[in-house]
Computed example of a mutant assay.
Amino acid sequence: MTRTLLTGGSGFIAAHILDALLKRGHSVVTTVRSQEKAEQIKTSHPGVSKENLDFVIVADISAPHAFERVVVSDPPFEAVIHTASPFHLRAQDVKKDLLDPAINGTVGLIKAVKNNAPSVKRVMVTSSGAAIMGFSKPQTYTFTEADWNNMTWEEATSNPLNAYRASKVFSEKAAWDFVEKEKPHFSVTSINPPMVYGPIVHHIKNLDGLNTSNERIRDIAFGKAKDSCPFTGVFLWVDVRDLALAHVLAIEIPEAAGQRFCVSPGQYSNKDIVECIRESFSELRGGLPTGDALKPGDFPPTGWYGYDNTKSKEVLGISYRPLKECIVDTVNSLNPFVNKGEGR
Rank of each mutant, 00 (worst) to 15 (best):
P138D: 06
P138H: 09
P138L: 06
P138F: 08
Q139I: 10
Q139P: 11
Q139D: 09
Q139Y: 13
T140W: 01
T140M: 01
T140A: 12
T140D: 12
T140V: 11
T140Y: 00
T140P: 01
T140H: 00
Y141K: 12
Y141R: 11
Y141A: 10
Y141F: 15
Y141S: 09
T142C: 11
T142W: 04
T142S: 15
T142F: 07
F143P: 01
F143R: 01
T144L: 12
T144M: 11
E145W: 06
E145M: 02
E145R: 03
E145G: 08
A146K: 15
A146M: 11
D147I: 01
D147A: 02
D147M: 04
D147V: 02
W148G: 00
W148P: 00
W148S: 04
N149I: 07
N149Y: 07
N149L: 05
N149F: 09
N150P: 13
N150F: 13
N150E: 15
M151E: 03
M151R: 11
M151H: 03
T152I: 06
T152A: 07
T152K: 04
T152L: 02
T152G: 03
W153V: 14
W153D: 15
W153R: 14
W153G: 02
W153P: 03
W153A: 14
E154W: 10
E154Q: 15
E154N: 13
E154P: 10
E154V: 12
E154D: 15
E154Y: 08
E154T: 14
E155L: 04
E155T: 03
E155N: 09
E155C: 05
A156G: 14
A156V: 11
A156T: 07
A156D: 05
A156R: 05
T157Q: 15
T157E: 15
T157A: 04
S158C: 08
S158T: 11
N159W: 05
N159C: 13
P160D: 03
P160K: 06
P160F: 02
L161Y: 13
L161W: 13
L161Q: 12
L161V: 13
L161M: 14
L161F: 14
N162Q: 13
N162W: 05
N162V: 06
N162E: 10
A163K: 01
A163T: 09
A163E: 04
A163F: 06
Y164K: 03
Y164M: 07
R165D: 01
R165A: 10
A166T: 08
A166M: 03
A166F: 14
A166E: 08
A166G: 13
A166K: 04
S167H: 07
S167F: 02
S167M: 04
S167Q: 06
S167I: 06
K168I: 10
K168F: 04
K168L: 08
V169K: 00
V169D: 01
V169Q: 02
V169W: 00
V169M: 04
V169T: 12
V169S: 03
F170V: 00
F170K: 01
F170G: 01
F170T: 00
F170Q: 01
F170C: 01
S171R: 01
S171L: 02
S171A: 15
S171W: 00
S171M: 02
E172Q: 14
E172I: 13
E172K: 10
E172G: 07
E172Y: 05
E172D: 11
K173A: 06
K173T: 05
K173D: 03
K173Y: 01
K173Q: 14
K173M: 12
K173R: 15
K173C: 00
A174H: 06
